[in-house]
Design a protein around this nucleic acid. Structure first.
Lengths: 411, 411
DNA sequence: AAGCTTTTTTTCGAGCTTCGAAAAAATAAT
DNA sequence: ATTATTTTTTCGAAGCTCGAAAAAAAGCTT
C-alpha cells in the first residue's frame, strides 16, 4: 500500500517538479515552468525564489532572445556549483571515472586500461577505489560537494543496486561496490547496469524518438538491453532486468559464454559472429575478447561478398529478430537503438533481422519498430550515470527544502 | 512530464487511499486506516466522516471482537448500495454477464452459449448489447447506480481499452465495444484482456504469493498471460500486452493458430497437444475447438503410460519452460499460476517445464519460481473485471469529493 | 523623450488541508 | 461507582496553492 500524502510532501514534490523542468528544458523562464507543471504563477515564483536563495538555481544571463514586447523572460538554470557527482564505468579491460557538475558538465575525466579478466578480486577493487580517490582529490572538484557516485558495470546488480552480482568481465562476483565506496568516502553510491544507463542517456537526448517507449541494445562481445517504458527505465522484479542476451533463441543450440546453450548472444555476440565467420562449430568455446578492428575487418569481408562472414552476420540478425519479436509479444513493439561496435555492422544484420521479426507476432504491425544505431557505448553509459545521479540529487536531496538542505550543507 | 500537484489533489488522493484501504482490508477501523496510510487520526476521521455522509462508506455492525479494554474499534465497510458495476466476459462459445454491488458481491448473473466462431459480426454485437440490457433492467439493480461496465475478451484491445482489435474467438476484428455499449446505455465502458483480468483477480486474493510480482498463464485452446509487477498490472506500450502465447519457441517451427510458425501456443495450446497426441504433423491445420472432456481423457491416457499422449504434454512443458525462462531473462523470475483446463494436466507438464526452465538464464536461480494451478478461468476473469471496475469508481469518481459526487448522484 | 501597451514576475489575502494536542466517548477492570 | 485504557472527534496552528492585483521591465507610439 502506498503511503498517504502529507502536507509537507506537497512542497517537496512540487520543488522536484520544478527542478525536473529546469533540468530537462535547459533554461526555462518561470512562465514556461508554469506551463510545464500546471502550477500557478504564484507557486512557481515562490518555489524558484527559494531554490535561488538556496543556491540550487540561478537566473540565467539574459540571452538576446527575439526581442518581444513586454518584460523579458528570465531564464532559470541549474547552478553548476550546487553539487557534483562522480561516474565510474567498469567494462571489459577498461575503467573510466568522471566528475560532473550539477548542471551536467564534465569537469574532469580519467580512463585506465586493465586486464579485468585476469585481475585478482582485491586488485580490481583497489583499482576502482583508487581511481575514485584520485578524482575526488582533483582540484576541479574544489568548489563542489560530491553528493553521489554512480557505478555502472556490465552484468547484474542486486535488487537494491548496491552489489555487483555477476559480470562477464571478471570471474569474481558478489562485489559490494556500493558499500565499499561508501565506507571509503562517505558518499552515497549506486550500482547500475551499463545498458540501463545507455537507455537513460538516450532518454535525456530528449528527441521524440526517445520519449516514452524505446529500447537500447548493446551489440558488443555480449548482448545487453535497456528498456524505457512510459518514460521510465524498466527494471524487472529485481534490478538486474533486461538480460536480453540470454533469451533462448534455439533450445539446446549454440554454446553461450554463460555456459548455457541457445542464447541470443551465442548467435549475435562478437564471439559468436567471429566463431561462425571462421566456420567453427557452434559449440566451440567462446573467445575471451575480440579486438574491435578484427570485428571491423570481418564486417568488411562480409560486405565484399557472400561467404561465411556474411552468413555469420545474417545468423546474428536472425537471432536478434526472432528474439526482439518474442520480446515485443510481451512488452509491445518499440523503437530500437543498437549501440556498440556491432552497430557499425547493422547494414549486414538488418535484412535478416527484418525478415525474422516479420515472422513474429510482436513484429507484424511494425510501424513503431524503427531502428537507429549509435557506435560508441562508453559516452552513453557515462551520460546515463551522470543523469541518474543528478536526478537523484534533484528528487531526493534538493527537493526536500531549505531546512534539510541547509543541514546537509553544513555536514 | 507529470503535472504538478495542486492543493485539492491532496484530498482526492488521500480519499482514494482510504477507499483503497477499506476495499483491501475488508472492515478496518479508523485507527487501522491511520496505520495503513500513515496519515494522522484527525485526517482519517475527517475523510471517513465525509465518505459516510456521502453514502460511500458505512460503519460496520459491531462484530463481537475479542473483548479488549477501551473504546471498541468501529469497522468501516463499503456501502454496497453506493454503486454497482457490470462485468461482461466474452470467450469461445460463451458469453457471461454479472451485476456486482459496490462491495463486490455478485447480485445477478447470466450465461449464454453461442457459436462465436460462426456468428456474424452484427449478431455477436447484438448478443452482447442485449445481454447488458437484460442485466441492467433486472430488478436486482433497482437500488443501485451502475457506474461502469468492464468487458473482458480473449485477444488484444487498443491502447485506450475501448476497442477489441483481434480475438481468436471470432473472425471479426476491430469491434469498438466500449463505444457501442456507451452509446447504448450511457455508462462508461472499458475493454480488457481476459488474462490481465485473471491476474488482477489473483492480486485481490491478497495472499502473500500474489502481492508484488507474479504471472498468470492461461492454458486453454490458446495461451495467454497476465503479468503483475510491483503490485501493478503490467501492460506494454500498447494495452494489448502479454501476448506470451506467440513468443517464438522454435523459429519456423509448428503451425500456430495465428498463421505463424513456432509460437509457444503451437506446442502448448490444447490444439497443439491434441495434434501431437494424435501423431499428426506439426503443420497440420489447428482444430477449431476441442471439448474439455476430450482434453481430460487425453491427459488420462498420458498418465496411464508412455506414448504419444505423454510426449505431447512433455513437448508442451518444454515449450512453456523455455519461453518462461526467456521471459524471465527480461522481467526477472516471478511465481507463476497456471489457469484453465490445461492446468488440470500440470502434473504431466511440470517435469519437462522444470527441465527446460533450468536451462535458461532466467530460470537458473529459481527460488522465486514457484508454480500453482487454478482450473477455472471464468470466475477469475469475472472477479478481475469487477475489481477493475470498482477500483475505477473508487479512484476516479468517489475520490473526487462531495461536490463532484453529488453532481454525479443527481445526473 | 514621455506616455502607452504588453508581458513577466511578485505580492497579498483567502481558502483548503493536514497535524498535534486535548477533549470526548465507549468499554473493561477494579 | 470509579479508574484505566483505547478509539474517535474537535479545535487551533501552520503551511501550501491559488486568483487577483500590483509591480517591474521592456518595446511601441506620438
Amino acid at each position: 500500500m502506498t503511503v498517504g500524502i502529507r502536507h509537507d510532501d506537497l512542497r517537496r514534490r512540487n520543488r522536484a517538479m520544478v527542478l525536473a523542468a529546469v533540468r530537462r528544458s535547459g533554461q526555462p523562464s518561470r512562465t514556461e515552468i508554469t506551463a510545464i507543471t500546471g502550477l500557478s504563477h504564484s507557486t512557481i515564483s515562490a518555489i524558484s525564489s527559494d531554490l535561488i536563495a538556496e543556491g540550487i538555481l540561478r537566473e540565467g544571463r539574459s540571452e538576446p532572445t527575439a526581442s518581444k514586447r513586454g518584460r523579458p523572460q528570465v531564464g532559470l538554470q541549474l547552478d553548476p556549483s550546487a553539487a557534483a557527482v562522480l561516474t565510474v564505468v567498469l567494462s571489459l579491460n577498461l575503467l573510466t571515472a568522471a566528475a560532473i557538475d550539477y548542471a551536467g558538465k564534465v569537469l574532469a575525466e580519467e580512463t585506465c586500461r586493465l586486464d579485468t579478466l585476469s585481475l585478482p578480486r582485491e586488485a580490481l577493487i583497489t583499482e576502482c577505489v583508487e581511481m575514485v580517490r584520485r578524482r575526488l582529490g582533483d582540484r576541479s572538484l574544489a568548489e563542489h560537494r560530491v553528493l553521489r557516485i554512480a557505478f555502472a558495470v556490465q552484468g547484474t546488480a542486486d535488487s537494491h543496486a548496491r552489489t555487483m552480482l555477476w559480470t562477464p568481465i571478471t570471474p569474481h562476483g558478489d562485489i559490494p561496490f556500493a558499500d565499499i565506496l561508501e565506507k571509503a568516502f562517505g558518499i552515497p553510491v549506486i550500482v547500475e547496469n551499463d545498458c540501463n544507463m545507455m537507455a537513460v542517456a538516450l532518454r535525456w537526448r530528449g528527441t521524440d524518438r526517445y520519449r516514452d517507449d524505446f529500447i537500447a541494445v548493446l551489440l558488443s562481445h555480449g548482448i545487453g538491453m535497456g528498456i524505457v517504458l512510459n518514460g521510465e527505465l524498466f527494471i524487472g522484479t529485481q534490478s538486474s532486468g533486461g538480460e536480453f542476451g540470454h533469451m533462448i533463441h534455439r533450445p539446446k543450440g549454440a554454446l553461450c559464454r554463460c555456459g548455457r546453450h541457445g542464447c541470443v548472444e551465442a548467435y549475435a555476440g562478437n564471439y559468436a559472429i567471429w566463431r561462425n565467420a571462421h566456420g567453427l562449430d557452434e559449440n566451440t568455446e567462446p573467445a575471451a575478447d575480440i579486438p574491435d578492428d578484427e570485428m571491423l575487418s570481418l564486417a568488411e569481408k562480409a560486405r565484399a561478398g557472400a561467404g561465411p562472414e556474411r552468413d555469420a552476420y545474417e545468423q546474428a540478425g536472425s537471432a536478434l529478430g526472432y528474439s526482439l519479436g518474442s520480446l515485443f509479444s510481451v512488452i509491445d513493439p518499440a523503437p530500437v537503438t543498437f549501440v556498440g561496435i556491432g552497430a557499425t555492422a547493422f547494414d549486414l544484420i538488418e535484412p535478416a533481422l527484418r525478415r525474422a521479426i516479420a515472422e513474429t507476432a510482436g513484429g507484424q504491425h511494425s510501424e513503431s519498430i524503427v531502428f537507429a544505431t549509435e557506435p560508441k557505448e562508453q559516452i552513453l553509459i557515462r551520460e546515463g550515470c551522470a543523469m541518474r545521479a543528478l536526478t537523484f540529487i534533484d528528487q531526493e536531496i534538493f527537493a526536500l527544502g531549505s531546512p534539510a538542505a541547509l543541514a546537509l550543507q553544513e555536514s
